[in-house]
Design a protein around this nucleic acid. Sequence first.
DNA 1: CCTCCACTGGAAACCTAGGCTC
DNA 2: GAGCCTAGGTTTCCAGTGGAGG
Length: 396
Amino acid sequence: MTDTVDAIFAKTKKGRLLFQDRNALSTEFVPDNLPFREAQTENVAEVLAPALLGSKPSNLLLYGKTGTGKTAVATLVIRKLLSQDDTRQILTAYVNCRLAGTEYLTLARISEALPMDKDKRIPLTGLSLSEVANRIFKTISKEKIHLILILDEIDYLVNTNDDTLYKFTRSGEDTAPGFLTIVGISNDLRFKERLNARVLSSLGEEEIVFPPYTTAELRSILTARAKIAFRLGVVPESTINLCAALAASEHGDARRAIDMLRVAGEVAEREGRQSVDEESIRKASDKIERDVVEKALPSLPLQAKIIIIATSKFLSGTNTGELYLAYTNLAKKSGVEVLTQRRVSGIIAELDVLGLIEAAVVSKGRKGRTKHIKLLVDNDTLGRVIGEDARLLDLI
DNA sequence: CCTCCACTGGAAACCTAGGCTC
DNA sequence: GAGCCTAGGTTTCCAGTGGAGG
């Protein structure tokens, strides 16, 4: 027993030699200059600069796929802006609309960044959206706040009606003498098409596009980060190359590349290796994929979990009708209310977006049209993660 | 070329939880 | 505390639809 414990500690001590500053590879870390994003950084700075003189900057839209540096550029510019703010009136709020979940929760998150009166705090539910928006506007007006609002994944705010966005883009009178500038960030290049023309004209006053990083650029970024994060010589060039190549095949996602390098370092450390080799990168790549699933599964609503379990009964895939029957059985067995097929079909679509299952519409001629559904989670993981939910244990 | 299946996916109505007002 | 209001989830209804079999 003590032997193994000693061994673990000894290994850890040895492994420590790899990292120098692990922070440089964390998702929150934004370096003081972003290579290959100089133009965009300057552009954003120019648009937001008027805030330093107390006037309202134009609203701004940042476009580009995940991991192309949109959030990093915004964060960096905001950081520098705040450090030079003599007016002391600028306040910034960052909200990820997808993570917030609903429109209401997005607004609630925004209000958290404001110095709200105690009795005006936003409760978890019960208020109308316009009431919440009005409270936010009133606070901005009363405290003369110059708010720069970063709405990451803003496309999730538009799906149903863009009433809230419209209100926010036209809030001038309600917020005076304060103001509100929106920096919208979107991964979806076609997001604009879904946007109401009136909203678009004021929200997209300025637009900046972020192209994907090339393999060479990723390589350069990784090399720079690795220099800060790791001790000299523990990351060979071949590791960087592999990491960059893997990320480049995923549409030039720098966040993913940096994540992978960090996890690879952790793997190498745990295994007591002397360097972060290509093997560590491969293991990291696997681990990241597993982690995504293991994080998403437990937070799923009960019904979605049951549907996932039902899907797991069909090893080589199934279709909507068959899956619905299996789901119905499971739900009855566990005493859960049975949803309609329309709803189940909707949840299937949601799980597809999450990447937990694969659901492609196929036509089988006379045998109709359906979705071919396949589980993308392996049964071990499923049993381990969903098994924690006592109600579902015996369904697996 | 036409049919017709087994759904898909949009739209609207309905339900529920929870804060608000008086 | 009664009655009102809304967001978000669900149900109800239904007009499409891709393509194998006729």
